[in-house]
Amino acid sequence: MRPFEITDHTADVGITAYGATREELFANAALGMLSIIGDPDTVAPKQAREVQVQASDPAALLAAFLAELLFLLEVEHFVTRRADVESVSDTEARATLHGEPIAPHHDLHTEIKAVTHHELTVEHTEHGWRGTVLFDI
């Protein structure tokens, strides 16, 4: 199974992420988002951060989780290379993020303004979990 696909939109960019479990789906969505912002291979998982997010339902939770990563990037200049997602319930996710402070060689080329809720989904299919997210660029 591919971890994620990038989807086209007239002005913005989205991802469809997959996972055998919800934890894997969240981890793959984080990687998908980084692949829009820059080149994941330039980022090393040197430092770790613990995060915990809550939301009202599974789809909003995925958006909140990704928004948390954007917040860390923008305010603390921490780029997440890999998310080890420990647990995802309907309303709460916990993860350890591995990454490093922003450096010029990361070549971050695309600013994601926000994780939108437009046609946001998290669903269980016969092939596992799938989530769709659209980012405001």
Binding site: A55, A60, A114, T116, H117, H118, E119
Partner: peptide, 30 residues
């Protein structure tokens, strides 16, 4: 910039939580 993006994000979550309270029927959660 990020300030406005976060205001929208915060507000959207707040509004989503009261859709039931105001009995709104909306075709897209955004």
């Amino acid at each position: 910039r990020g300030l406005g993006h976060q205001v929208c994000d915060d507000s959207l979550r707040m509004m989503e939580s009261v859709i039931g309270k105001y009995r709104l029927q909306l075709p897209d959660r955004q």
